[in-house]
């Protein structure tokens, strides 16, 4: 039977649509022209300006601190949550499951708004800690879902087998469950790391003085046209690192 070419054609179009703006952005980061309307020659100028922009690197450092600590915390919380969801069937887990999935469909602005309300009403000063809390909150659901997906492929009789061969409950978890779950946990952690670095909306609500993360810095730079080409350069670096992270996490999740 002849296969229709239309879906393939649309797919090609969609991929082009998704990548064209990014490609233009990457190309323009090497373009001497300020607005990138025409090619005015190759330059490293914007990267040099980026290198010299100390406040950007300061923001990157803050962003990384938050992203690393938030992804570590969510890896622990998310793995526990996923294990509980997978292992037990009960009313408690139904509630648990609902609480894990709801943040996935909560618009960012609402999560930012409600966390801000919490911090304002309880008198907590906004800053690094509040950003970290917010990031753990919105990453938790994603990490749990990734680990849960991995757990669903995990054969629970392997734990029985370990017990049968003389392992205690704790040994069975350490020697069998964790090694098999690790790729999933790492993939979840990487996802959390990317989401945390990426977040603008929620961070904007709960940030305080001296906690300008990279996306917040980019947003303020976007308001002045002088720094636009520098954003091109920065974006190119960020897209490249996203690409690396995506490939890594893809590998991790596929590894059986």
């Amino acid at each position: 039977m002849k296969r229709s070419w239309l879906p393939g054609f649309i797919t090609l179009g969609v991929i082009l649509f998704l990548f064209a703006p990014l490609v233009v952005l990457v190309v323009n980061s090497f373009n001497a022209s300020r607005f990138g309307g025409e090619w005015e020659g190759f330059t490293w100028m914007w990267y040099e300006k980026l290198w010299a922009a100390g406040e950007i690197w300061e923001s990157l450092w803050i962003t990384l601190k938050i992203a690393i600590s938030a992804s570590l915390a969510t890896m622990v919380l998310g793995t526990l949550a996923a294990y509980a969801l997978h292992r037990f069937r009960s009313g408690l887990q139904n509630v648990h499951h609902m609480l894990i999935t709801l943040p996935l469909v909560m618009p960012d602005i609402l999560m930012g708004m409600s966390l801000l309300a919490l911090f304002v009403l309880t008198g907590v000063e906004t800053g690094l800690l509040t950003i970290w809390i917010a990031h753990v909150t919105f990453c938790l659901s994603f990490v749990t879902m990734v680990v849960l997906g991995r757990l669903q492929d995990f054969d629970l009789t392997l734990l029985d087998a370990a017990r049968d061969l003389g392992a205690t409950q704790a040994q069975a978890v350490k020697k069998v469950l964790l090694p098999l779950l690790l790729p999933g946990v790492l993939a979840g952690g990487l996802l959390a790391f990317t989401l945390s670095i990426d977040d603008y909306v929620i961070t904007f609500f709960v940030s305080g003085p001296g906690t300008t993360t990279l996306p917040l810095r980019v947003a303020s730079m976007m308001k002045t046209s002088r720094s636009l080409p520098v954003i091109n350069a920065l974006s190119t670096l960020l897209i490249a690192s996203t690409f690396l992270v995506a490939v890594c996490s893809h590998r991790l999740q596929r590894r059986a």
Binding site: F35, G37, S235, I239, T242
Partner: peptide, 24 residues
């Protein structure tokens, strides 16, 4: 997945510069 994971602001920015009156 790559555009999905790419920075949200960057993706908006990409369009902003693409559609800029002086843009390509």
């Amino acid at each position: 997945i790559i555009p999905f994971l790419s920075n949200f602001l960057i993706r908006i920015f990409a369009w902003k510069s693409l559609l800029h009156p002086e843009g390509p």
